[in-house]
Nucleic acid binder design. Structure first.
Length: 484
RNA sequence: GGGGCCAUCGUCUAGUGGUUAGGACAUCGGGUUUUCAUUCCGACAACAGGGGUUCGAUUCCCCUUGGCCCUGCCA
């Protein structure tokens, strides 16, 4: 059975790249193989005690759990223990002792200064920098622990599920450090030990780990363990094609959530960053992603994170959710709406479903601003905005139009918020165009601006409905005053 | 310096030894009972360069260029 893992290091907030790696692992596992769906293990790689914090750990767990891609086993599962590397030092210690005992690893006391100097010299001679083996056969009893990489070890090969046959020449590798001490293991040792103990069948990770792979294969072999399959994913890039970074982009999941991107939309977008189906589908449910996902359709080249496309996908999800389940949508959007607007939820839900608002919002954070013209006080606007040149509106014309609109409005009756009357109001106003023999823009634009005071706002009929007759008349009169 | 990975429109990408090189986002233009938005229609836009192999290369090979990743007693 397939078993994959997502092993974040709690040295920062949940990174969007980690989210994508988790997603691909999750999709691959759930897609499964002949044995059915596989499992995903979530563990925390906190061997770097200096940089790891509980706060980051919590952020990562919460984020992945919220997105629903934290997997089936791991520290996020109540009662699950031993998925945190800091709790497994005994295991690593015994692995280390065995390696030492079997002479597959040795102690090294070379100083940092000497090592630095050695590297500098090698570089100056245009050589690859690698450990020179000074302590190799000294039989030391203390120091850091290095893996002994045999000289006659042939090339290291693996079949990468994304990149095909990979070959690294043995001469490129050296005796690398696997632990600072028996009680202080380093990355390569801990991942290999964990992947073995947790029976991981497929290691799916970013391509920045390609060069770590031969080292880890060597460790699997030294410990006499079966080597898992590897798949290296393309990186997510900044606009300038460098690896996605905090300096040039928003990189933590929280940033996106806080801006009002929906979890499903983020996942959909991320799925398409480096993977796709041969058909032309862009919007996928989680079930579809699981069904269609295969590693052989994962791209090799890095993919630029394009916020515009994320915006589009998010807008599609908002539209869909409002149409399908407005209560659920309101629940999700509530923090964004209620922090800015103090209105009855039932009313907001009704407005959200108004066709005039369909497709208007890219992000949840767009909602309060989009809705506010229906509730807030009339902003002060310049006369030029309402008497827009573009439509050829003259001062006389404007006055004539506004007087007529006021007259027509007085003859209409509607309850504030009665959206059934929107059609009636609309027809009445559009009728004025013909009555006065003017163009649409010469009549309808002034009405909308008079009601909203804004260049961009909802439709005039929508505004009138929610403003109510009284306020509508007041605003029209105000516009007339301004024009006179 | 060393090693590795990668290369189709601005971006995400489909695709093939012979295609009008397809779609989506973005952009631009036009239509829909005003603006913006929506929606519909349309337009613009790509095989990095040079050698091979071949009847024929965007596709296969090599080189160059470019970008990126790694090069830690971080992960």
């Amino acid at each position: 059975m397939i078993r994959v893992r997502i092993p974040p290091s709690p040295t920062g907030l949940l990174h969007i790249g980690t989210v994508r790696t988790a997603l691909y692992n999750y999709l691959f596992a759930k897609h499964g193989d002949a044995d059915g769906p596989g499992k995903m293990v979530f563990r925390i790689e906190d061997t770097d005690k200096e940089r790891s914090t509980k706060e980051y750990e919590k952020d990562i767990i919460d984020g992945l759990v919220r997105l629903g891609i934290a997997g089936d086993e791991g520290i996020h599962v109540p009662g699950d223990k031993g998925y945190r590397q800091s709790e497994r030092t005994d295991v690593y210690k015994s692995d280390l002792e065995r390696l030492l005992k079997e002479d597959k690893a040795y102690y090294c006391e070379c100083s940092k200064e000497r090592l630095d100097q050695m590297r500098a010299e090698q570089q100056a001679k245009k050589l690859a920098s690698r450990y020179d083996g000074t302590c190799r056969d000294k039989g030391l009893k203390s120091g850091v622990i290095r893996l002994r990489v045999s000289e006659d070890r042939g090339d290291i090969k693996w079949h990468d599920l994304v990149r095909g046959e990979m070959v690294i020449h043995a001469r490129e590798l050296d005796d690398f450090v696997i632990a600072r001490s028996l009680d202080d293991p380093l990355y390569h040792l801990t991942v290999v030990a964990d992947d073995h103990d947790m029976e991981i069948t497929h290691v799916i990770r970013g391509e920045d780990h390609i060069s770590n792979t031969p080292k880890q294969i060597l460790l699997f072999e030294a410990l006499g363990w079966k080597v898992p399959a590897f798949a290296h994913l393309p990186l997510i890039l900044n606009e300038d094609k460098s690896k996605l970074s905090k300096r040039k982009n928003k990189v933590s999941l929280n940033d996106y959530l806080e801006e009002g991107y929906l979890p499903e939309a983020i996942l959909n977008f991320l799925a398409l960053l480096g993977w796709n189906t041969p058909d032309e589908q862009e919007i996928f449910t989680m079930e579809e992603l699981i069904e269609k996902f295969t590693l052989d359709r994962v791209h090799k080249g890095g993919a630029v994170f394009d916020v515009k496309k994320l915006d589009w996908i998010n807008g599609e999800y908002i539209k869909k959710m409002v149409a399908e389940n407005v209560d659920e949508f309101y629940r999700v959007a509530k923090p964004f709406i209620e922090s800015k607007l103090n209105e009855d939820p039932a009313l907001i839900k009704k407005i959200l479903q108004d066709p005039d608002f369909e497709g208007r919002f890219k992000k949840l954070s767009d909602i309060p601003e989009g809705l506010s013209p229906l509730f807030t006080a009339l902003p002060d606007y310049p006369l030029e905005l309402i008497a827009r040149e573009k439509f050829g509106i003259t001062s006389e014309m404007l006055k004539k139009v506004l007087k007529k609109v006021i007259e027509v409005t007085k003859g209409l009756e509607w309850e504030k918020g009665d959206s059934n009357k929107s059609q009636m109001i609309s027809e009445a106003y559009v009728g004025i165009v013909e009555t006065l023999g003017l163009k649409n823009g010469q009549v309808l634009w002034p009405i909308r601006v008079a009601l909203s005071g804004l260049e961009k706002s909802p439709n005039f009929a929508t505004l009138a409905v929610y403003l109510g007759k009284e306020e509508t008349l007041a605003r029209l009169k105000k516009a007339l005053q301004k024009a006179s």
